[in-house]
Design a protein around this nucleic acid. Structure first.
Lengths: 153, 153
DNA sequence: GAAATATAATTAGGTATCATAATAATATTT
DNA sequence: AAATATTATTATGATACCTAATTATATTTC
């Protein structure tokens, strides 16, 4: 069997990865708000440098590693729900600035609180040392996998 | 700001999780084979107790934590590609046994080899101790998150 | 300063990977 | 024998992405 060639440590890793794979830890905690909508709100709220300016669609896309048409769609949905506004950019008439409405602010506050609670809880559950260890190893593993792929092509 | 309430260790974890989130480490390594098709082949090949019997659709679904209609669809695609056969179960006429064709065996061999190489490489890259540590922490984190969700509802 | 090129957002249309509900056939339990 | 459960399938839909084409505006180059 081919799979007999796998190292026991590697197999353990593989099994955990495959067990974890399909669990959506990043679901939206707010009913009626899709996961991708929550992500966009989070991005707008927590990754802006100048909050009063709002965020460009292309900026959101770049930060989230998603194409602009995808962001446009999500923004449309958030707009329908009254959570964001589109404000024409004064200095570049091709651009639109996305800002949160008061309702949007209220919703992202709830999302953020949930994320805080979840990760504070997780970090405490693991202990700060192991928590840092997990972050470090995950990143290292991720970078390795990404590069293996690139070489493969 | 709400996010100021997050512990530095928790924040680090959150950032790594969100950086990793959208990378598909489990893509199919074989051109023309979809990721979910590779998963089903892998499941049939490596999780059967009695390989000569083939695997039931419901069994595959249970093992992969996916509904049976979804498996049926994937099996249809694999069938079209000549990678699996449907063999009526002799003892239960409602059931169908899914078996790999020779071509299917050949393909899953290539998939398995790729998985072996990837995880052996990763495990070596991390070192066996850290590799085990990552598996342990990931599982622990996963279980925690799953349970938080359940309590939340 | 006109022409060529680049960038921003959108629209249109499509793909991958799942799900639920309903159905038909067969097994199992009562 | 009747009621219930299970197996697989079909039909349909949802989510979250994508690429290609389009329109409008900016920037660069000659």
């Amino acid at each position: 069997m081919v799979m007999d060639g796998i190292d026991p440590h590697a197999r353990k890793l593989m099994e955990v990865f495959s067990a974890i794979e399909r669990s959506k830890w990043n679901d939206s905690p707010v009913k009626g708000l899709a996961a991708n909508e929550a992500h966009v709100l989070f991005c707008i709220k927590h990754k802006t440098i100048f909050p009063q300016e709002g965020m460009k669609v292309s900026e959101i896309g770049r930060l989230m590693k998603v194409t602009t048409p995808t962001i446009t769609q999500t923004i449309n949905n958030l707009y329908k729900k009254g959570l964001v506004l589109r404000i024409p950019d004064i200095h570049d008439r091709r651009s639109v600035r996305i800002k949160l409405t008061d309702k949007g602010e209220e919703i992202i506050k709830r999302v953020s609180e949930h994320i805080c609670i979840t990760f504070n809880g997780l970090s405490q559950h693991l202990g700060s040392e192991e928590s840092d260890k997990l972050a470090e190893l995950l990143l290292k593993a991720h970078n390795y996998i990404i590069n293996v792929k690139k070489i493969d092509i």
